[in-house]
Design a binder for these strands. Structure first.
Lengths: 111, 111
DNA sequence: TAACTATTTGGCAATATCGCCAAATACTTT
DNA sequence: AAAGTATTTGGCGATATTGCCAAATAGTTA
């Protein structure tokens, strides 16, 4: 395993990790239809605005969404619609296993 | 946000979380070409066999790989080739941002 | 400029993840 | 049956992630 290969998989994992949270998946799903301001996303998620803002930062750092400020509001939109294709595959995995959510933000996660 | 929606995203996140690690991405990549026994995968990864075994368990629990025992060895293979399509999308995200790996198993992860 | 609104940032406590070691399990060979 | 091989499981210390609160920042309006 050469270093180059190792770094390639670490880089990919960093992007996938940004998607690996129910709230962030929800945000990506919403943003795949329309751009939204943070306040609106916060209302949809139902968590503290600071929590939602941090999730959006994670997505933005990974290159999955982008944002621009208009007046007081910051509007986010999906940069990479191709991630939506992936969800069909994920759904097929879920259907084929009857899997249910495990080990994720037990009891604290609004989403 | 109704409960049903919440659970749907938690379920999806659980599957994606199983992919969100460089070693597991590497395993998926290797298994997408051929089935392999744990010992061979362990050698390729270069970590402790117990570590590799646990990563394989994570992938299997998520429904992404399956395994069967033959003699002393356990052979794993990819159940869901569709995940490979996703990597092209991930690569395009990476190329468009020049992103590099962050915050992941710093200094400890062989992969 | 002071008050107000929208968002981000800092920090902390609670969880979750990770990798290794040691021990247990399962199967094979002698 | 005893010894040997392949794999899984238990457990622990080290890291990383998450959500909320409070405070800081940025822009708007009175």
């Amino acid at each position: 395993m050469d270093k180059k290969t190792r770094i390639r998989f670490e880089t990919r994992a960093a992007v996938i990790k940004a998607l690996a949270h129910p709230t962030r998946l929800f945000l990506v799903d919403v943003l795949s239809r329309n751009e939204k301001c943070v306040c609106e996303l916060t209302e949809m998620v139902g968590a503290d605005i600071s929590t939602v803002s941090k999730h959006l930062t994670v997505l933005r750092t990974a290159g999955l969404v982008e944002a621009d400020k208009r007046g007081l509001q910051v509007w986010y939109r999906l940069r990479t619609p191709c991630v939506m294709n992936f969800f069909d595959c994920i759904e097929s995995v879920i259907k084929s296993t009857g899997s249910s959510p495990v080990g994720c933000c037990v009891g604290r996660c609004k989403l």
